[in-house]
Structure formats: structure tokens, C-alpha cells
């Protein structure tokens, strides 16, 4: 059957990786573990951003190249609200909500009028993201901001081998796992999730069963965009917020989704892990060629599995 061949191939691909990892681990255990942790936590952030992108594309086939703008808007709104109210939690909620509202507006006022026209959607959303970038520059300027998470998330936790590791990055990881689990539950255990899955399979039949697809689309867009905004606040607290972050996270989402394959939470998670790890290993071991690894992974995936590692169709 198919499975043993897959397994053979997986083993073939994994063996050199394991050998290299074992060497790296032996060479400098601490550096290796630190790079791994950095990679996994970066992957957590990528997962948060990309899962929204994958959800939106998976159901509606909408190519939303303004997804990075949703991330950045969420970050700015989160910063402002957090700054004004002094509550980081309120900032998180506001960032996610702000992006979700913008997402619904995009769906209702833009995507609704160009179903199935990927090229037009891509061009229009690129234009929108340029406009949004200028608007955000106008409101928040070119300064670099960073949100302050609550007291207890500061500082570092004691871990084996690396000894000290920033607590906030571990929280990031926990959040990503929670969001992944939440998404899985949403898709598999709720009524709207059932509608989203049925809509991915055959949306016309879903409409003919009495479901208002525009409503399902709007809800999905709100969730996907809300995730981007949420990621913006979370990422803006771990790293920083500045103009240009929008394209960076859009690119990251695209790569993650290309590598992992669309349509499954697991695919997005695996794609995010691969990209996050390769970036951080590259940074640790071959700073000059770091970026190259990401693109090698992408090219290899496109060559051997153009639908992505977990891509079904």
C-alpha cells in the first residue's frame, strides 16, 4: 500500500537530519538546545499568524495578501489599548477584535464581490495592504514599540541545560498549543466548524441545505483575522512592533502554508515548526546563509510535494 513507501521516504529524509542534530548536540549541547527552543517558540508565533491565513484560504479560497496588515494592525491597536488602560490583557483582546472587525469588513466589502478570482483578489489585497501600511504609518509613525506583558510573564524560567530561558517565550508556546487545540475543537466539535468543513468540501450543497454562506464566510474571516491580530499583540510583546512587520509575517504565513499544506491545523503546525526551526538553526550555525535554509525547504516541498506536506488535494 501507500503507507510503507511514505515511511521509507520519511526515514530517508530524517536520517541525515538526525545525524546532523546528534553531531550538533554533541558539539555544543547548550547552543543546540537554545536554538531549538528559539526555533520552537518562533514557530509558535508563525503558527498563530499562519493558522488564520490557512483557515481563510481553506474555506473561501480567498487569497488575502493583506493578512500581514491584520497582524500589524492588531499589534498597534493592542499596544495603544494596553498603553492607555495599563492592562496587557485588554490590549490582547482589543488587538484581536480590531483585526477581526477589519477582516469582516474586507470580506463583506471586497472579497464578496470577487469569488473565485484569485488573481484579482491578490492584486486588490496587495493594494489594500499598501494603503493600510501608509495609514498605520500616519497614525503610529515609524517608531518601534514594544508591549509590556504582565509582571509574572517577565523574567526567565529555569530549564535544564540552558538554565535560563525567557518565560514569555514559553508562554508563547503554550498559547500556540492552546490556539491549535482550540481551532481543532472549533472545527471538529462545533456547529460552525461543521459548516466550515462542509463548506470546504462542497459549498453550494451547503447553501442548498439552508446555510447562509455569506454568514459562514464572515465568521471564518473574523476568526482568521482575529487570530492574526492576536498574534500581532503576542508577537509585539515578544519582539517589537514597527512598519514592515506586516510583509514579514505575510511572507512567513505564505511559506508556512506552502510547506505545511492548506486545510489542516496539523499541516500549519508542521510547516511553522519546520520554518521556525530552520530559521533559528540557520542563525545559530550558519548566520550568513540562514535565509537560504527556509527557501531550500520551500523549494524541496514544492518539488516533491507541491500540495504541501499535509496537503490533501
Amino acid at each position: 500500500m501507500k503507507w510503507p513507501r511514505h515511511r521509507d521516504r520519511a526515514i530517508l529524509a530524517a536520517t541525515p537530519l538526525v545525524v546532523v542534530a546528534a553531531w550538533a548536540c554533541h558539539h555544543d549541547t547548550r547552543l543546540f538546545v537554545a536554538a531549538t527552543l528559539n526555533g520552537v517558540t518562533l514557530a509558535a508565533l508563525y503558527f498563530l499568524v499562519a493558522s488564520g491565513f490557512a483557515l481563510i484560504f481553506g474555506l473561501m479560497r480567498n487569497v488575502n495578501l493583506a493578512h500581514g496588515s491584520l497582524y500589524l494592525l492588531g499589534a498597534y491597536v493592542g499596544y495603544t489599548v494596553g498603553d492607555q488602560t495599563g492592562s496587557w490583557y485588554l490590549g490582547v483582546v482589543a488587538g484581536a477584535l480590531g483585526a477581526a472587525v477589519l477582516g469582516v469588513v474586507l470580506q463583506v466589502s471586497v472579497f464578496r464581490f470577487m469569488p473565485g478570482q484569485e488573481l484579482r483578489q491578490a492584486l486588490v489585497t496587495v493594494a489594500i495592504s499598501v494603503v493600510l501600511a501608509d495609514l498605520m504609518m500616519w497614525v503610529w509613525g515609524a517608531d518601534i514599540y514594544q508591549l509590556d506583558p504582565p509582571e509574572w510573564m517577565y523574567g526567565s524560567s529555569v530549564l535544564p541545560i540552558v538554565q535560563h530561558y525567557p518565560t514569555y517565550r514559553l508562554i508563547l508556546l503554550v498559547l500556540a498549543v492552546a490556539v491549535g487545540g482550540g481551532l481543532w475543537l472549533l472545527l471538529n466539535r462545533t456547529r460552525i466548524g461543521m459548516m466550515i468543513r462542509a463548506g470546504v468540501d462542497d459549498r453550494m450543497m451547503l447553501a442548498a441545505t439552508g446555510v447562509n454562506m455569506q454568514f459562514v464566510f464572515a465568521v471564518t474571516f473574523a476568526i482568521g483575522a482575529g487570530l492574526a491580530g492576536f498574534a500581532g499583540v503576542i508577537g509585539g510583546s515578544a519582539l517589537s512592533i514597527s512598519p514592515g512587520e506586516d510583509t514579514r509575517y505575510l511572507l512567513a504565513s505564505l511559506i508556512v502554508v506552502v510547506v505545511g499544506g492548506l486545510g489542516s491545523v496539523a499541516g500549519t503546525a508542521v510547516g511553522a515548526l519546520l520554518i521556525g526551526l530552520s530559521e533559528q538553526y540557520g542563525l545559530a550555525y550558519a548566520p550568513t546563509y540562514g535565509v537560504l535554509f527556509t527557501f531550500l525547504i520551500m523549494v524541496a516541498t514544492l518539488f516533491y510535494r507541491p500540495q504541501g506536506i499535509f496537503g490533501g488535494r
Partner: peptide, 19 residues
């Protein structure tokens, strides 16, 4: 045109809402 990722039970529950 049944939905490939829904179980039999989910099909019926989904349809049993609107009327």
C-alpha cells in the same frame, strides 16, 4: 455530493436546523 469530511451523523445534524 455528500461532504467528505463530515460523518453521517454530522450530515444529519447540520441539515436539521433550518426547518
Amino acid at each position: 455530493r455528500v461532504w467528505r469530511s463530515l460523518t453521517v451523523d454530522e450530515h444529519l445534524r447540520l441539515a436539521h436546523r433550518f426547518r
